[in-house]
Each structure stands twice: as structure tokens, then as C-alpha cells.
Nucleic acid binder design. Sequence first.
DNA 1: CTGAAAGCGCTTACAG
DNA 2: CTGAAAGCGCTTACAG
Lengths: 362, 362
Amino acid sequence: MKSSRTVSTRATEPVEKALAREGKQVTTPQRRPTQRDIAIATGMSQTAVSLALNDVESSTVSREARARILRAAEKMGYVPNRMARNLQSTRTHTLACVVPDLTNPAYPALIRGFQSAAEAAGYDTMIFDTDGTLEREKRALHWLAQGHVDGVMAVFFHVNEAAVLKAVRTGMPVVQMESQTYRPSKIIDKVYINNAAAVQAMTQLLLGKGHQRIVMLSCHKGPGAERERGFREAMRGAGFPARIIEAEDFTQAAGERAITTALAAGSQFSAVLAANDLLAIGAMAALRVSGKRIPEDVALAGFDDIPAAQLLHPALTTVRRDEQDIGRFVAELLVARLGGSDSDLPGRGFEMTYQLITREST
Amino acid sequence: MKSSRTVSTRATEPVEKALAREGKQVTTPQRRPTQRDIAIATGMSQTAVSLALNDVESSTVSREARARILRAAEKMGYVPNRMARNLQSTRTHTLACVVPDLTNPAYPALIRGFQSAAEAAGYDTMIFDTDGTLEREKRALHWLAQGHVDGVMAVFFHVNEAAVLKAVRTGMPVVQMESQTYRPSKIIDKVYINNAAAVQAMTQLLLGKGHQRIVMLSCHKGPGAERERGFREAMRGAGFPARIIEAEDFTQAAGERAITTALAAGSQFSAVLAANDLLAIGAMAALRVSGKRIPEDVALAGFDDIPAAQLLHPALTTVRRDEQDIGRFVAELLVARLGGSDSDLPGRGFEMTYQLITREST
DNA sequence: CTGAAAGCGCTTACAG
DNA sequence: CTGAAAGCGCTTACAG
């Protein structure tokens, strides 16, 4: 291996000297070229450069001039400054995904689908992780208000629709996912599944297997409330008490803590219905520690069908929706509104489908 | 449930009419207030408004004027336009994470750590998913060139350092993760673990258990090359052939396909060493389909220790590093360079630690 | 203590 | 076919 040489340094010396001779700043040797630089280099006006680079239909920069400009831009390594363009056009060509927890595998799948559809339509994607806390959701709203993006898909646990509308620029399309209320909104589109019905169905599945002492391991945030409602209705319909164990978060750690605590307190149950898969996995760990077999001693069900669900032992019974497909759908919704075709439609609600996946854990 | 009423529509009518009477545009009823609007409302200059809002130390807007401005800003719901601010200050207060695959659980953990440290320092975080393809990595570079962010942590599989340097604004701090070469760079910081050594150690662990026909299930992208090198060296040292099965991607699906194909072709082995956990999980699925027991018939090891690794049956032997901690570290590296304290340091290399986690699969 | 002015890099009427 | 000019909403010397 050759030791580092000084050739490259030497190579730049003449340039620096030349600049210094002209009395120019040497501290920022490679400022990015602007349209103005191209204009000077080609002898055209900055307007002509902008017109040529952006291929504006109405304009008619001569073929020859245009070619010269493009060549110079290429040679100088011109890249448009997006901040300037955004300021001028009040369009950022960027969409945002606001999610509570990137480490919950349900969200990356959603985002992937979103991003692929967004990109196909010429939009970049920004992702904001709120950690599922009120404070960071407010930060997200503030961030949205600053004009970073043209549209947003958001999963909010705490902040309500009024707060969202207040924060966001009038006319900016918003799709709220799994919003607590499915009431139609004047402006905001909502995409969700019928959480109550899904959990009700799952509860009935457990009841059908003869379980009577079913507890729900839930978290009273976001879709948790609706899922709990479905559980309560199913249990009431069957004439059994609906016991709910609240975890602090939709995470594995919180699920494990909650079930461990419940077991220590002498809680008795033959089935655990978790409000999402991460909680279910936490429950699985806690049950295992306490020596309970799944499903022989305690049946277990989750919600989301994250990739790990089918790899567990026992594989987890759960509720699946096609996150990637939903993400794609939402991005297309936003793009359609931005394209102008759907821009003046009132807020709509889209109920997506789901299916129960029965596996070994029940 | 009440049917939708028209009260809200009526409520907005007076405003629209009032605007129309004044001959103003009604299409964008609530343009966001700017500093100019506040200036007009308070009778101060726009400069004074900017100074007051930004709490500029050197300036001395009178206490009374400042209070009036802040009150007006609050009342009018003023939020600064970030595009304008960014254009002026050439600072975006945003950092980027460029990763190959958000659905690989290793990356969300990295990003979470990154984002928490970035936020603590006053930076927002943008995430770009390249899908591990050359085309999208180029898109990412182009996107970086447009000035969206002040600094970036990137995992590139295809694009090399020269291309990164060419794309990025001079002086913009870059941390490359797991870069193919660990040679020090003039400018770019590198953060990595010793992939070759880690895989070498893992191979020796398998050799120590008596395995001789070990195959590596790898993907020749990003850190794959170094990991393969470690495998080759360990096998050569032991005097056995180093067989490598190449998967198309670092995904579960690719791993499953590759092992299924290899088994169909009559490949014989007593252990599979996968270049990451997702590949290992794919291998597990393929082995299970073919009736092989793990670890009795075939031992299996992975790399990353994603959350699912310990939940598998059998639980997966793998290599762990603290992704969250690494993400935090990288963000702090960028922030320090942006803060000016480290801004003129040459590119440095940071080797992070890892550990082998032995579980049931070996 | 306060304001007029220049300028960040673009886009887009508008007038030759 | 081409360029001078205004302006997007800010920050920051600079001159009162």
C-alpha cells in the first residue's frame, strides 16, 4: 500500500493562488455554482438559464442557447438549490410520514410502500418519529407548520384533528391513520381499519375455543381505545367480564412488564389478547418466565402480523393488513390532492380490509 | 349518529364575503402570517420583528417593543418559514440518515438513537431509504446535493467515497457507516465494526463445535464483502474450503430462495453462517421446509441481533452491536463538526465493539 | 434603540 | 427569441 502523497494538495495550489491573486476568498474554495454563475459563463441572462434548465414549455430559449446552457451546467456540476426553489414556488416536492415508533416493524412496511409510490410521483419522503409522546407529536406539528413538506401521512396518538388543522398550512393535504374518531372531517382524509370489529372477531375466535377468562393486554393510545371497545363488546355479548391490562406503550418491554406484574398480583386467565404484536411478544416472554406453556396453559393473540409473528415459537395468531399496500394507497391519495384533481374534495374516510391469521399460539 | 350538518360551512361565509368585499383573493383564505404581517400589525419594522423573534444577542430591541412583537406573533399564530430561513442562513438544522432498508430492523434502531441525539442538539432528522440499489443511492446523493440537510449519516452499498464527496457541498460533514474500505479519508468520518474479525470469530466458534462443512450465506454488497473475507480466512486457517452462497439481497426472502436453491442442487453442509439475521431467518425457513432440524442437522448463525433473533425457535446465535448507541454516537459526531469545534479535523475512523451471542441455533 | 437596504438562489410575469 | 425586474420570507451588516 502506498503511503499518502501530497499530489492532490499540490494539484489544487495553482487554483488557490490564482484566487488569492484576484483577492478572492479562499476559505470556501468550492461554493456550489448557481444559475448566476452559469449565466456569466455562457453570457446569457440568469432568467434564460432558469428557463433552459427547467424546460419551461411556454418559454422559447433558442435551441442553440439552451444547449450551451445545459452543457455549462453539466460541466460546472450545477445542482439547483432546493431551498431557493421551495421558497419561490411554495412547493417542496416532499411528503412526510409521521409515525410513533420506527422500531415497531409495522411502520417501516407502511413507510416503504408510501415512499415507493411517492417517489414514482416525483416526491421525496421525510420521516418523523414521535416516540408516541404528546411532546414529540407537538414538535412534529410545529415542524409541519414550518413548511417542510407539501403533504403528510400521520399516525397521532395524542394530538387531535383540531390541533392538526391549526398547525398545518391551509390547503395542505393530510391523511390521518388510525385516528381515534372515524367521523368524517371537513378536510382531512382518514385511512383505517375497523379496529373494534377486528378485535371483536378475534375475541370471538378465542371464545369459540372455549376460553372464558380472557384478558386484553392493551395500551390506551391511538388505536388502542377502539380495540379495547371491540374486546368489551365481544365479552359483554358472551356474558363474561372484560378485563384489560394496560401497558405503558405498544412495545415488547412494556408488554412483558405488564404481564409480569399481573401474574405476580395473582391474575388468572386462560388467554391473552394483545393490542399489537410487540405487546404479544412481551407477554410471551413473561409467560415463559413464569412457566406457562403457550397455548396449552394460556392462549395468545396479537395484532399487526409483523414479520416476526410467524417466526415465533409458537407462531402467533394475529390480525393482518397489508401495510405496504396501505402506505402506497395513502401516498397516492396525497399526490392526487396535490395534483389538483382531488384538491377540493371534502375529507373522506377509507376503511381498509384485514384478516385474522390463525397460528399455533391459540 | 347525527348526519353531517352545514353549520360549519355557514360559519365561514362571513369571512369570505368580507374578503371578497375588499377585493381580495378568496382562494387562499388563510395565508400564513409572515414577519412583514407582524411588522404591520405592531407598527415596527420587519427587521425589528426578526430581531425580536430570534432573540439576537447583539441587538437591542426595547423590552416593550419586543413584548409587543412576541404577543402579536403569538396571537397571529406566526411560525417562521423554514425555507426562507434556510435559504438565507444556508443552514437547514436538519440531518439525514441514508439507509438501505427500513424494514431491516437493524436500521430503525440505528435511526432512533441518531434521532434522539440529533433532536437534543436542535436538529431534525430526515430519513432516506435507498433500497440498497445503485440507482436509488444516486438519487440519495442528488438529493443530498440539493441542500436539504447540514450533515448526513449514510450506509451506501454501491456508491463510493469519491462519488459522495463530489455530490456533497464542500464542508458538509458526512459519516459513512460500514464503508467498504476502512482506509482513512481526508474528510469523511467512518464508523464501523471489524466485520472480518467478527465473522472470523463466529466461524471459529462453529469450527470449535466440530463443524467442517460450513457454508456462508452472504450478499456481496456493503459489509458483505468484509464478512466474506473473515469467513475465508477462518476456513483457510482451519484447512477447509470456504463455500459461499450468494443471495441477491440482505432479506429474508432472498435468504430463503438461496438456501432452497442450494439444497435442491444437492449442496451438503452442517452449518450455515449468514451475513445478517434476515438471511439467517430465511435460511431457517428453507431448512425447515426441507425437513432439517436446527441445530441437530444444521447449525445456524446470523449477524445483527435484531429483536426477532432471540424470539426464534431455536433462538439465533448472532453478532450484536448496540445500534442505538452507535446512532447516537454518529449524530454527536456530526453535531460536533457542525458546531465548529471539530469542523477542521481530518476524516477519522471509529471502530465500534461487538459481541458474539450464543443461543440455541448452534 | 430602530429601520432602510442588500442579498440568499431561485421562478415568473412582463416588456422589449 | 431574450433580459430586466419583482418577489418568495427571511437574516444580517450598516447607518442613523
